[in-house]
Amino acid sequence: MKAPLPHSGMEHAESHAHGNLKSYVVGFVLSLVLTIASFGTVMTDLVPHASRLATIVILCVVQLFVQLVYFLHMGTAKSQRQNTAIFACTSLLIVIVVAGSLWVMHNANVNMMPMSMSIQSALKHP
């Protein structure tokens, strides 16, 4: 978080690492708006069906970053750089695990599952 700490009196790493009331209120209001926007996308007819998935995924990612910055105080401050770097590495692993699983299993489904096979016929011919 780049926001300077107002009248805290100490430019100390720890105060950076714990935030202040303003950062919690800003994070809370933003999260509230993003959550309502997510549910609104699906529960109302304001967004066309074709772009709903993209909308909720974007809202999800934005809210993740809002909470990481305002609640977990992740950022480029000196005391937080280590955590941010670890988080970046973990994100890479998560993307590989999730995207890889979906991709591999999608291909397996498309190429290996006989489309005509139902549960009943599978049970008859083990």
Binding site: E14, A17, Q82, L93, I94, V97, S101, L102
Partner: peptide, 29 residues
Amino acid sequence: NASMTTVGFWIYLMSDCLIFAVLFATFGV
């Protein structure tokens, strides 16, 4: 010490994140 504890705990959280990533991948499949 305090900040090293927090970093250590953060590493635990990230490993927990991986557990959830695997569960989300399973759910997605």
